[in-house]
Design a protein around this nucleic acid. Structure first.
Lengths: 233, 233
DNA sequence: AAGAAAAGAGAGCACCGCTCTTGACGTTTG
DNA sequence: CAAACGTCAAGAGCGGTGCTCTCTTTTCTT
C-alpha cells in the first residue's frame, strides 16, 4: 500500500483504491450480483471501458472486495483477542464473538459477501483462502492455549462418529495441538453457531421472533462458552 | 392447485407451474439476482412480454419461489418429525436436523434463496411469513412437548440478560408453553446452530477444513441435543 | 528527444427488465 | 345470435449491463 515510485504508479494505486471504495458502496445498495463496473466507472468520471485496465473482469474486483472483507473481520477478531487478558479464556471467546457481530453489523454487505450466498459463477481464487482462515485460526489458538493451561473442563464425549477434520493430522497437530478431540469438535460447532447467529440476525431470520438481539447474542455466546467447557473467570 | 374449471384456467395454472419450474432451474445456474424473466419466456417458446401476464414483475416470481422453498423445508421437517416415535424427543430433534440438512443438500439454490444473502431491493411480502415459520414452530413444539413430559433436564441458567423474545407473552405462552426460559433460549441457539451448520457446509465454509461432513453434522446435532437437555433414549 | 508502455475514449455486440401499444382471441351477456 | 368485454400474445422501445476492439493521448524510460 506504500506509495509507488513513479507518479503513474501512485495515481494507479490511488485510482485502484477509489474503485474498490466505490464498489464497496455500491455493494450496499445493489448487492454482489448487481455490482456494475460501468456504474463505478461512471461515478469516477471514467469511461466504462477504462476500468478494465484496473480490474480486467468483474470477478477480479469481487475478489479484491472479498479479500478485504476477510482481512477486516480477521483483523477485528485479532484485535479483540489481543485486547483481552491472556488468561481470561472465556472472556477472549466473548470478545471474539462480539467483534465478529460488531463488524458484521457495521459492514452488513461485506459480511454478506463472505458469508452469504456464493456469487453464482464466481470461483474463489487461491488468494482468498489465507485471509478467509484468519478468524478461525485465532479462535482455535484460543482453544489450544486454554487446553494447555488446563482451563477447559473437557465435556463428556458425544456418542457420535468422529474424525471429522480434513488433513486431520496436520490440523490437529498444529492448530488444535493439545486440544481434546471432543473439545475441538465443539469448538467447530460453537464457531458455526457464532456465524449462524450473526447471519440469522443480519439476514432477517430473527424478524418478528427475537427482539433484544444483543442480549440474545450475549446469552448464546456465554452458553456456548459453557458448552465448550471454558471456565468463566 | 386443483384443475380450474374453464380450459383457460387450466392452461394458465399449467403454464404458471411451468414458469416456476424453469425459474427454479435457472436459479441453479444464475442465482436469484440473475433470474431472467426473458430467459424463462424464451425457454418456454413464449415472447418475452407475455410472461408478465403470469408474474407481473420479477419479484412476484421470486416470491412464489421463496414461498415454495419455505414450504418444502417446512414439510420436510414436519414429515421427519411425524415419522419419529412421539416420545423419543432427542430422536425427533435429530430427525429434524437431518431433514433440514438433507433438503438443503438436495436443493442448495432454493436453500440459498431463503437462508442466504437477501436479494437486494426485494421486500418479502406478508405471504412469506407463515411458510417461513413452519419449521421453527415444529421445533418449538417439540421442546414444549418434551418439557411437559419432563424429558428435559433443565440446564443451569446462563448468567446473561434474558427476555430476548419479542412479543414475549404471546410467544412464551403459545409456542413455548411450559418451557423453561433457559431451555427456550437454548432452543433458539441450537436452531441457530443448525442453520449455521447447513449454511457453512453449503456455502463452502467447510472447504479445506471439514472432511466428513455428515459425521461432523451428526456430532454437532447430538451434542446440541445434550446442550438442550434432551434426554437420549 | 525518441521510442515504448500505459491509460483513456469511443463504438459495438449481445444481453437484461420493464413499459406501452396493438391486435387477435374466447367468454359472457343483451 | 351477435355484440361487448376481458384476456393474452406480440412487438417496439428505453435505459441499463459486461466485455472487446480500435484508436488516440499521456507518461515513463532510455
Amino acid at each position: 500500500m506504500s506509495a509507488g515510485r513513479t507518479a503513474r504508479e501512485r495515481v494507479r494505486a490511488e485510482l485502484t483504491r477509489e474503485i474498490t471504495d466505490i464498489a464497496r458502496r455500491h455493494l450496499e445498495t445493489d448487492g454482489a450480483g448487481g455490482l456494475s463496473l460501468r456504474a463505478v466507472a461512471r461515478e469516477m468520471g471514467m469511461v466504462s471501458s477504462a476500468i478494465h485496465r484496473y480490474f480486467p473482469t468483474k470477478d477480479d474486483l469481487l475478489t479484491a472486495l472479498i479479500i478485504d472483507a476477510y482481512n477486516a473481520v480477521g483483523q477485528a477478531v485479532e484485535d479483540a483477542d489481543d485486547a483481552a487478558p491472556r488468561d481470561d479464556y472465556a472472556g477472549r471467546w466473548m470478545a471474539m464473538c462480539r467483534a465478529v457481530r460488531a463488524w458484521a453489523l457495521a459492514h452488513p454487505h461485506e459480511y454478506a459477501l463472505i458469508h452469504g450466498t456464493p456469487v453464482p459463477g464466481y470461483q474463489a481464487p487461491q488468494d482468498t483462502v489465507d485471509p478467509a482462515a484468519r478468524d478461525g485460526i485465532r479462535f482455535s489458538r484460543l482453544l489450544s492455549e486454554a487446553s494447555r493451561a488446563g482451563e477447559i473442563r473437557v465435556p463428556p464425549p458425544t456418542d457420535a462418529p468422529v474424525g471429522a477434520f480434513s488433513d486431520a493430522e496436520k490440523l490437529r497437530e498444529t492448530i488444535f495441538a493439545d486440544v481434546d478431540p471432543e473439545v475441538a469438535l465443539r469448538g467447530l460447532h460453537a464457531w458455526t453457531w457464532l456465524y449462524g447467529a450473526v447471519s440469522f440476525e443480519l439476514f432477517g431470520m430473527y424478524n418478528n421472533i427475537v427482539e433484544k438481539r444483543a442480549a440474545t447474542f450475549e446469552h448464546g455466546a456465554l452458553s456456548m462458552a459453557a458448552y465448550l467447557g471454558l471456565s468463566p473467570r
